[in-house]
Design a binder for these strands. Structure first.
Length: 469
RNA sequence: CGGGAAGUAGCGCAGCUUGGUUAGCGCGCCUGGUUUGGGACCAGGAGGCCGCGGGUUCGAAUCCCGCCUUCCCGACCA
């Protein structure tokens, strides 16, 4: 029966494969306005799972959710020189509303440091009010020149954290905590995406930040994708928005602030980090549907057995969906594969006659036979094994596509297939320009042991360079 | 925003070069039946401002101009 592949093979045309997956897995459609995106239920379910996992981690660091307005006075942006310069080109500005020209144009938020800063200034009076740890789940708008579903849309969904602290040390420590305990932990343990953590070189820094940290993942085609970002804003925004507090000694002092975000781009990252020619591959801990219980035939006994298995899985807190036999078996199997559901339990009359069902792993195609009564109990362990195998595969892929080199020329060569790692001294300055001219950028700087530097001034740093999305 | 490609049914495409009556095909969709252990089959059926606007012409999917959108490669970027 060997059907022709439903998706364009990755090796033939990776961008086309990506679009095929987005469409065939029913994740998203282009919106009517350039760069906008309609997120379909399956795509949104994936995002909701990401939200749930990240939200729990964010709250565990002590931050609380709040919500700030979509519209920001344009004047707020001019208060921080680098910020306005960095964001001006991609702002959407409302100049006309309620039937008339507005006295002051209103910006549709591209990020909320400014408006949050304004209110932090109001809420922070004393050192006792610090740290102030806020997060919001919101949409933002950036008028991007080259949109791609999930990876870069004019409007996207994200979380943005904003915090204010007494000291540089406290702000810096908290930012690093977010980077490790929220983002890195989520990326590794849920998304199974082992990304490189590092700091951005000055050229790639967030407008207004004194330091930007990033998590850079390796996609299946070897390109880089920034999965998250954490900024130390120093006192830049505190100064611009008068975020002062009175210290224990009774002196007015400027706060240190941070901001950090992860967006619906992660859905694109999920696709490109794990997907294969059969479609998406969703790590079990993330999957909105972890197990599809598939009725091979629309038969009373089969359906009853499916319901029983699904019910026991539900009791074991496994996210499960039953696929009754409406349509051909092969078609339904293919559809679940495209959506990347980690496990299928196939229930058919032949197996059932012996009290058996078949379990199939999406990641490696492995089929195993289990007893109808016992299968539900074995699923959690199978899901965990699939999760760790997926992570191991991603680590191997990352390592296989990371090349230690010594010159800018070698780095350029390596960037055709992945990341190049080399001494930052070699690249800093002219080298970075040379790389940029070939669409290769410095993704991040690390210490030699892979840990996060304090800043770019540290000696002996290495940089990871790659082509990126 | 620069360079390239493309917009014809939900999706993928043919038709356009050389303008000419009711615009085709495959998949999908609907109805009925047979099916269902890896994208099923038969029969019948629905579905089109040929991206939008203007122009040329007796006549435009087809030729010309403008715009919009999508895709690829860059610059901007989560």
């Amino acid at each position: 029966m060997a059907a022709q592949s439903v998706l364009t093979p990755q090796s033939e045309d990776f961008p086309r494969w990506y679009q095929d997956v987005v469409a065939k897995a029913e994740m998203a459609d282009n919106g009517p306005v350039r760069g906008t995106m309609v997120i379909r239920p399956y795509g949104y379910a994936l995002w909701e799972r990401m939200q749930a996992e990240m939200d729990a981690r964010i709250k565990a660091t002590g931050a609380k959710n709040a919500y700030f307005p979509l519209f920001i006075p344009q004047s707020y942006f001019s208060r921080e020189a680098e910020h306005v310069e960095g964001f001006s080109p991609e702002l959407a500005v409302v100049t006309f509303a309620g039937g008339e020209e507005l006295a002051e144009p209103v910006v549709v938020r591209p990020t909320s440091e400014t408006v949050v800063g304004e209110f932090m200034a109001k809420w922070v009076q004393s050192y006792r009010d610090l740290p102030l740890l806020l997060n919001q789940w919101a949409n933002v708008v950036r008028w991007e020149l080259r949109p791609r579903l999930f990876l870069r849309s004019s409007e996207f969904l994200w979380q943005e954290g904003h915090t204010a602290h007494e000291s540089y040390q406290d702000a810096s420590a908290y930012a690093r905590r977010i980077h490790y305990e929220v983002y890195h932990d989520f990326l590794v343990n849920v998304l199974a995406c082992p990304s490189y953590l590092g700091i951005k070189p000055a050229s790639e820094r967030f407008p207004g930040a004194i330091n930007s940290m990033t998590g850079e993942a390796v996609m299946r085609d070897g390109k880089a994708l920034q999965m998250c970002t954490t900024h130390e804003l120093g006192q830049n925004f505190a100064r611009a928005f008068d975020i002062y507090f009175q210290s224990e000694a009774g002196v007015a002092e400027l706060c240190y602030t941070t901001s950090w975000g992860a967006s619906t781009r992660l859905v694109g990252g999920l696709i490109m980090a794990h997907g294969d020619d059969h479609g998406l591959l969703v790590p079990p801990r993330l999957a909105p549907v972890q197990v599809a219980v598939i009725a091979v035939r629309d038969d009373a006994d089969v359906n009853e057995a499916c319901q029983r298995v699904a019910a026991s899985l539900g009791e074991a807190h496994v996210r499960v969906e039953v696929d009754r036999a409406r349509g051909s078996f092969g078609r339904r199997v293919t559809d679940w594969e495209i959506k990347g559901v980690p496990l299928r339990i196939e229930v058919g009359p032949r197996d059932l006659a012996q009290g058996l069902v078949t379990v199939v792993r999406r990641d490696n195609g492995e089929k195993t036979t289990h007893s109808l009564d016992g299968v539900a109990g074995e699923i959690p362990a199978l899901l965990e094994r699939a999760q760790s195998d997926l992570l191991a595969r991603a680590v191997a892929h990352r390592d296989a596509h990371t090349y230690d080199v010594t010159t800018v020329e070698e780095a350029l060569e390596a960037a055709n297939d992945g990341f190049a790692r080399l001494a930052w001294d070699v690249v800093s300055g002219e080298g970075e320009k040379t790389l940029n001219a070939q669409a290769v950028s410095v993704r991040c700087l690390q210490r030699q042991d892979g840990s996060l530097p304090v800043n770019e001034d540290e000696q002996g740093l290495v940089c990871l360079v790659a082509k990126s999305y």
